[in-house]
């Protein structure tokens, strides 16, 4: 019973967050790029979360962060899940050396942590939202590939897929035929990748890499920590903690969902 409530709450949180991201211009009190307010104001009815040291309204920035952070998370997760799934099915389809090479590649990402490789390439790339998405997507598919590979190796033995192979079906035909078997695992991995991409995005921003103009939760955390007096007054309460809370709630809600999918 409690599991069901947790699941429903997680869905509600994720859907609310996505709709805030989609419709934030209608609920945002000010323009997020407007820095004409008095800097470092405490929360008041005009500015519910106060203003930062530049004079931005913090609530507007937080709401704007919903859109960019969630876009990065969804897009990167979509691409990385796709790459991982195709590579995993390729393992089962071609076997032999293709399988060996892909497995070795995923092992490489265990030996060198993804985030370190990701940081390395994100520094080399031009800063920008698209490059952040690509960097996250290109270096986080290893777990998807590992898990889907195990599923596809058992799925390919099924009769209907063996028929497709007999009829010389291409890898795409096999992927389509297998979809029904793979779908639950792929959906779980997609949710998992979303949360991982959100974590990676905030980590990159925390390291000061990525688009310096895009307002994301990670960048808000970074600028809050860069501000000298963050811990001396109460400023952390409305400056640092809201973006941290957003990241945490999003990530935990997703992991609850992924966990439920996995059990089904």
């Amino acid at each position: 019973m409690s599991k069901k409530i947790a699941n429903k709450a997680a869905w509600a949180i994720v859907i609310t967050m996505l709709s805030v991201g989609a419709f934030y211009p209608f609920i945002s009190p000010y323009n997020a790029a407007d820095f004409s307010f008095r800097p470092l104001m405490d929360p008041s009815t005009a500015h519910l979360l106060g203003t930062d040291e530049m004079g931005h309204d913090l609530l507007s920035m937080l709401l704007a962060g919903f859109r960019i952070t969630l876009t990065i998370a969804l897009a990167a997760a979509l691409i990385s899940t796709f790459i991982g799934t195709v590579l995993a099915v390729a393992c089962a389809y071609y076997k032999n050396w293709v399988d060996t090479v892909i497995v070795k590649l995923t092992e490489l990402f265990i030996i060198v942590p993804e985030i370190v490789v990701l940081l390395f390439f994100a520094v080399l790339a031009k800063p920008g939202v698209y490059n952040t998405i690509l960097a996250i997507a290109l270096f986080s598919w290893s777990k998807v590939a590992r898990i889907i590979r195990a599923k596809s190796i058992t799925a390919i033995e099924k009769e209907k897929i063996q028929y497709t192979l007999l009829l010389k079906g291409s890898i795409w035909h096999v992927l389509i035929k297998m979809w029904r078997e793979l779908y639950p695992a792929v959906a779980t991995m997609f949710i998992f990748q979303c949360s991982k991409a959100a974590v990676y995005e905030s980590t990159l921003a925390f390291f000061g890499i990525g688009d310096p103009l895009a307002i994301t939760w990670g960048r808000m955390i970074r600028t809050a920590l860069n501000y000298e007096g963050i811990f001396t007054g109460g400023a952390y309460l409305w400056y640092l903690l809201p973006p941290i809370a957003c990241v945490c709630i999003f990530v935990v809600a997703l992991s609850v969902l992924a966990y439920d999918f996995e059990r089904e």
Binding site: S195, F206, I221
Partner: peptide, 24 residues
């Protein structure tokens, strides 16, 4: 399941919160 939720959080966020509480 508690640990699962804990594990999914970004490490640096956990560190910042701890630093905030126990140091400052």
């Amino acid at each position: 399941s508690c640990f699962m939720a804990l594990q999914s959080l970004p490490v640096f966020v956990l560190a910042i919160v701890f630093q905030l509480l126990f140091c400052f």
